[in-house]
Simulated assay, not measured.
Amino acid sequence: MELSILLFLAVLTGLLLLLFRGHPKAHGHLPPGPRPLPFLGNLLHMDRKGLLKSFLKFREKYGDVFTVYLGPRPVVILCGPEAIREALVDQAEDFSGRGPIAVVDSVFQGYGVIFANGERWKALRRFSLATLRDFGMGKRSVEERIQEEAQCMVEELRKSQGGLVDPIFLFHSVTANIICSIVFGKRFDYKDPQFLRMLDLFSKSFKLISSFSSQVFELFSNILKHFPGTHREIYKNLQEINTFIGHSVEKHRETLDPSSPRDLIDTFLIRMDKVRLGKRICLGEGIARAELFLFFTTILQNFSITSPVAPEDIDYTPQEVGVGTIPPVYKICFQPRTMDSRLRN
């Protein structure tokens, strides 16, 4: 009995010490925010529907810039276009760093143009920008690839014969094929087993990375990494993708012609450091804009689009909001246009 009482008093004393010493000293130098608890931070203040809803509520009380403790880690949140512009545009150099994302850190380990920082990131970014430019970023060659893919997309949509379809997979396929044509030097058939497997792995991993369980893992990764969870499934998926890319790199190495690079992999193998510096902005922004324009106009030229739900009743609430935003599932009809309707429009 005495041992039990002593144990209880020891635990109680420890909790009291944490309560009075658990608030970081740096809190007074950070923007205002909800008062954190020891170890848990602001977890109990969070909305169960996700971090985004919680942050929007905090914004109402503390303004566009506030501090939230994700577990024991303080995080400064920027809300609103003005605050974000001041940080990412007006002070782009100071805010060009990328914070670690615990759920994928064991795979990337600070490498890659998305997750790297410092000189490693600058060198890889210079290489990537120059390579995209060499392959005609925003020029005719890339537009030709997009136009070719747009025609393949039209043929697939015609197969629906105007019926109700979920186009998300097809849209993923056409955009992925543009990337594949630049990185691997070829596009894939939409039913290619290897292509389908890679798309499935990317889609599942992105959803898992943006899930609530991954957000919880981000808070307490030092503990949760020792237990089963979505982080292990993400690791397995990304390792399989890495293996696929590794095999492709080896095939490129065996057939490499330094005088005539075929794609980004060839260029990576030939030259890595002969390029210039840039800010942290989406490397494929120019390609993405061209894709949006050409895919959208091609669809409108060939189809009339209708939805089973009235526009004012469409629910845009995302499935998940985390590292990325997962859009809701939806269905629409692509009714092929007749020649007369094309001429009128």
Rank of each mutant, 00 (worst) to 15 (best):
P24E: 10
K25Y: 08
G28I: 13
L30F: 05
P31D: 10
P36D: 13
L37S: 12
L44Y: 02
D47K: 14
R48M: 13
S54L: 11
K61P: 09
Y69F: 14
P81N: 06
E86W: 09
E86R: 11
L88Q: 12
A92K: 02
A92E: 07
R98A: 02
R98C: 02
P100R: 14
V103I: 13
I114P: 00
R126M: 07
A130M: 09
L132T: 08
G138S: 10
V142D: 02
I146H: 13
E149N: 07
M153K: 06
V154A: 13
L157K: 04
R158D: 00
R158I: 00
K159Y: 00
S160W: 12
I168Q: 12
V174Q: 03
V183R: 00
D189T: 07
K191W: 11
L196G: 01
M198Q: 09
S203T: 04
K204T: 00
K204Q: 04
S210T: 09
S210I: 10
S214Y: 03
E218I: 04
P228Q: 04
G229F: 02
H231P: 03
L238C: 07
I241W: 05
T243H: 15
T243L: 15
F244A: 02
E254Y: 07
D266H: 06
R276F: 11
I299C: 00
P318F: 10
Q319M: 12
G324Y: 13
I326G: 05
I326C: 05
V329E: 12
V329W: 09
I332H: 03
Q335Y: 00
M339D: 12
